[in-house]
Nucleic acid binder design. Structure first.
Lengths: 331, 331
DNA sequence: CTCCACTCTGTGCACGTTCACAGACATTCT
DNA sequence: AGAATGTCTGTGAACGTGCACAGAGTGGAG
């Protein structure tokens, strides 16, 4: 049994293809009588428009591709992605756009993404966690509109994005430590080719000024193990620290383990602050004082930017959203 | 500048459309001379096949849809999804299939999915976390092949799936408790309309037999809060328990909090066992003894089943993969 | 009454591909 | 030599839709 086409609907409703097509595409100039007849015919036949045929003539595909540039480990652990995926699906569905997922972790995958996009298979591109210097950005060039969730370093003025105010968040945590009377405040950063890595450190340094010496700063790669390693390193270098701001909750969980191993009490000996307010933050002991990012709003604004570009908007400004200090027991 | 079509490639290579098409689709009967000429023409023109035009005639779409039936909270927390998404994208890409994501959390979303699938917009359906009695399964009916990651309760013989051996995992943990000499072993289950909820309890009961009384069993909904609540409930009902098997790591983190609040030491007073070996398991204090599911293999086998069905395989058997006990400090 | 503007409808064409078919040519077998 | 087989190629039709266009009907203004 073949799928019904627009011809079948037209025949059943006693009108022509053109009229059905006009109704489907929200044009005016469809008489009330024709309208009800067509609507009945559609529900009777169970007609669903054939996207392939449509996109052949409209040159649009009805889909948006989300490109994950992260090497796969991170995909496991970041609630950011789940939120973004969910919000993206929901908001795109309202416009009858579907979400296609692609990976761009290595050169072969990037090649595939470029072929897909340049081949005209997506009306928009949603970049996620694209690192500084990622060749993908150049390669996509002047294809369909692209946005990013989080800044793309080096392309801030080319690719619109929505992001949390990373510097603000870092300042909030650091100022909280200062207000509590902590004297030796250290930091564990993320990778320095990501906005979260760079800007959270900047916020930290803005508050502490010259007190933010390199002896008080260690670098991690977002993983729990790297947080533990960095904390051990800091304790070795500067045993008298009494607070540490860790650029992610997961790394903070690692830091807690290192502090416990070193016999330091949290928060009495050393205060620990995380970043993200992820599910890890409440499963550690003690639960983490952390910075909440407005993940849902970030996702919404990102999609909104993309939809605006698809609708033909010109250059758009980035959207920066405020963070919030969430106080629990670790600081 | 228009995108090059197969005509342009044919012209540039000095052959006809048909020959180019044959090469593209891996047919035999293309002479070596034609082959090199076409390949050169393709790379010179930057030609990419137009999927819309292709699927119009082949009646295939080149995409697979992944349907997430979970109300959105869970999406936040389960590493299972990230693994599945990543593996799915990778394996499908090898076959030049792309992954489309859809939600089916409420009736409107389910309606959209059904229209999409019945409208012929997917060559295969990948069900995720479909609950017992989900109307979606019926509604999809005799469309393209569907598989599930994890059993779909009530449709085990209709929808092929790959899953961990839930009962085995539950037995492994329970037997470990028994071997340690624990006498009063309780359990916190997941929701009883999911395979993980039902079968982990079954495995538990298989080992304990009549000792698994209802006083020793409490139910959660996979969330950390529900784990905490269930643990408190158990401690109230049966204060002398000395071990508890919790059906997920996240709920186990909640249980740890409840035990701490009640002043019970872990593992000395009460041993705690989780399930999943998720990232939470190593961020709790103490780290969780838990059951590892072979997430990657599960995902791979699921996709393999789907690809086999797309290739025209008949009825397929479910794939059940063994779990593994991971011993840490909580038991 | 004529003209114009507006609403509504049907028709032919194009989008870019695959597939079935027919035919050309080379090779092998009887 | 003729037939049969196998390799390679080009051509026309079809897939289902949107769009431009032409044209029919209606009502109001001049």
């Amino acid at each position: 049994m073949k799928r019904p086409t627009i011809h079948d609907v037209a025949a059943a409703a006693g009108v022509s293809r053109g009229t059905v097509s006009r109704l489907l595409n929200g044009d005016r100039y469809v008489s009330p009588a024709a309208r009800v007849a067509i609507e009945r015919a559609i529900s009777e036949t169970g007609y669903v428009v054939n996207r392939a045929a449509r996109s052949l003539v409209t040159q649009r595909t009805g889909s948006v591709v989300m490109v994950l540039s992260e090497p796969y480990e991170k995909l496991f652990e970041d609630p950011n992605y789940s939120t973004l995926i969910r919000v993206a699906i929901k908001m795109l569905a309202e416009r009858d756009l579907s979400l296609v997922m692609m990976l761009a972790g290595d050169a072969a995958e990037r090649e595939r993404v470029v072929r897909f996009v340049r081949g005209g298979h997506a009306d928009g591109v949603l970049l996620v966690s694209t690192h500084a210097g990622d060749p993908l950005v150049e390669a996509l060039g002047s294809g369909p509109p692209a946005v990013s969730c989080g800044a793309v370093i080096g392309h801030e003025n080319v690719i619109p994005y929505a992001a949390a105010d990373e510097r603000l968040g870092a300042r909030q945590m650091t100022e909280y430590f200062v207000a509590q009377g902590r004297r030796r405040i250290a930091m564990i950063t993320g990778p320095m080719d990501t906005p979260g890595g760079i800007q959270r450190l900047e916020g930290f340094a803005e508050v502490l000024g010259r007190k933010a010496t390199s002896k008080l700063i260690a670098h991690g790669d977002w993983t729990q193990a790297s947080g533990e390693r960095a904390m051990a390193e800091l304790l070795e270098r500067t045993p008298d620290i009494d607070a540490v701001f860790v650029a992610s909750d997961l790394m903070a969980a690692g830091a807690l383990a290192a502090l416990r191993a070193a016999g330091r009490g949290v928060p009495d000996d050393v205060a620990v602050g995380g970043f993200d307010d992820s599910s890890v933050a409440v499963s550690t002991h003690p639960p983490l004082t952390t910075i909440r990012q407005p993940l849902t709003e970030m996702a919404q604004e990102t999609i909104r930017l993309l939809l605006a570009l698809i609708d033909g908007a010109g250059q758009l400004e980035p959207v920066i959203l405020p963070t919030e200090l969430v106080i629990r027991e670790s600081a």
